[in-house]
Every structure is written in C-alpha cells, then in structure tokens.
Simulated assay, not measured.
Amino acid sequence: MRISGSTALVTGANRGIGRHLAEELLKRGAKVYATARRPESVGIPGVEVLRLDITDPVSVKAAAAAAQDVDLLINNAGIATGTNLVTGDVDTIRRELDTHFWGTLDMVRAFAPVLAANGGGAIVNVLSAASWFSYDGNNAYSVAKSAEWSLTNGVRLELAGQNTLVTGVILGAADTDIMAGIDYDGPLLDPADVARAALDGVEAREVEVVVGDWSAHVKASLAADPSEFYGRLPAAS
C-alpha cells in the first residue's frame, strides 16, 4: 500500500490524531477526505471536507456515496466519557459502543465495496491500549475499545479475499483533547508521532502497529497473571 497517490478518508479529522493523520497523508502525497460532524471545524488546507457522523447510518452511507475513489479508510473518530459500568449512565455506555464498535463497523461495511472496486486498499482502525485492560473510572471506554479491537481482527479475515489490508493501531495516552478531562500524570505521546507510525505501518503492510512503550508493556502483560498487572495500576481518584 503506497500512501503517495492514494485517496484516503479520515474520520474525526478536525482535531487530535485525526487532524495529524490528515496532515501527514497530505505530506505523503495522498488525496484526503477529512470528515467531522461539524465540517466547519476541520480547517486543514488542501483536504476535501465531508460532513460525517459515524453513529448515524444515513450519514455514513452519504459519505461512502460521495467518496467512491477511496482506497484508504482511517477510522479514527472516538469519544471518552469517563463512565463506569455498574453505576454509570447506561445511555452513555451505549454511546461509547455506538461510536467505537457500531460506528466503526458501519464505516467498514459501507466502504468495503468501495475499497474492493479500487483494488482492495487498506483500513486503519485507531485503537487503544485500553483494548487490553480496564481502569476504574473509564471502563465503558475499555469495553468499547476492546470490542473495536476484536472487530478489527474479524474484518481483517473477512476482507482478506478482496485484498484489503486491515491495520489496528494501538496507542496509549496521547496529547489530545480527549486526555484533557482525564486524571493522568504520565507521559503523553505526540499525536504527530502516532500518525507517522500508523502510516508507516500501512506502507509496510503491518496488521498491528503498537505505538509507545506503555502499549507494548500492556500487550506483553497479557500472557501473565492479571493480578501482576492490575496490582501495579494506581487506584482511580
């Protein structure tokens, strides 16, 4: 998969990692559809802006109809509500799943025929190390991201026959607006570094890109007794 000369669509391109992905794609010679629920918030010179709410199936279908030349789909849009499962608002928990799981799945289903018609191309799902662990105070996010990670593995198998690469990008905490409302005092990844690593991974046809030491640590811990990992996590404040 060559970025230069490709046509990419990025969800949630108005800020954070999505914005950096759109800008990095432009630098590498791609045509870019930058999408957001409020298209006026994008403000990136050189992109084609589309209105898109991934939780609205009508909006998703409209985006797929408008961007029939896409051969690189980047599912980046996401939310973090800081909601727990037992005592948290059920509608908010559903909103996390509607965004990360159902929204991503709707995008994949809508664009899979587009990618097939354009030679297969690639899908990038921006995931999280929280796919692999839970944290008291943000458990709805972990459940939703875990579901999205499993979705990524599943659609990779289903789309292999049409020569579509499916890459999951796993990262820890990044210096974005989502982290602004979360009690976290550790180092933050530069979203520009995440964007570069993600696109490097696509060009190398990697199925999983693990960004940062924390993500690598979490992945390595999965083979051990969970009490060893959770015993080292700080308690939620």
Rank of each mutant, 00 (worst) to 15 (best):
I3Q: 06
I3L: 13
I3M: 06
G5D: 10
T7P: 08
A8K: 09
V10H: 02
A13D: 05
H20I: 00
H20L: 14
L21S: 09
E23C: 08
E24D: 15
K27V: 10
K27I: 01
R28C: 09
R28Q: 05
K31H: 10
Y33E: 02
A34R: 01
T35P: 06
E40L: 03
G46E: 06
G46F: 04
D53C: 04
I54F: 04
P57T: 05
V60L: 14
A64V: 03
A65E: 14
A66Q: 01
A67H: 02
Q68M: 05
Q68C: 00
D71C: 02
I74N: 01
I74M: 08
I74A: 00
N75M: 04
G78A: 11
G88H: 05
G88P: 12
D89A: 02
V90C: 10
D91P: 00
D91G: 05
R94H: 11
R94D: 05
R95K: 04
R95E: 01
H100R: 02
T104G: 07
T104K: 04
R109I: 09
F111D: 13
V114Q: 04
V114G: 08
G119R: 08
N125K: 03
S128M: 04
A130D: 06
D136N: 13
G137A: 13
Y141T: 03
S142L: 09
W149C: 09
S150D: 10
S150G: 06
L151F: 02
N153Q: 15
R156G: 08
R156V: 01
L157I: 07
L157A: 15
G168M: 02
I170A: 11
L171N: 07
A173K: 10
A174S: 15
D175I: 00
D175P: 10
T176R: 11
I178N: 04
I178R: 02
I182E: 14
D183A: 14
D183R: 14
Y184E: 06
D185C: 02
D185W: 00
D185Y: 12
G186Q: 12
L189F: 07
V207W: 11
E208F: 06
V210C: 07
G212S: 13
S215C: 10
S215P: 11
H217S: 14
V218Y: 01
S221L: 11
L222Q: 14
S227I: 00
R232H: 13
P234R: 13
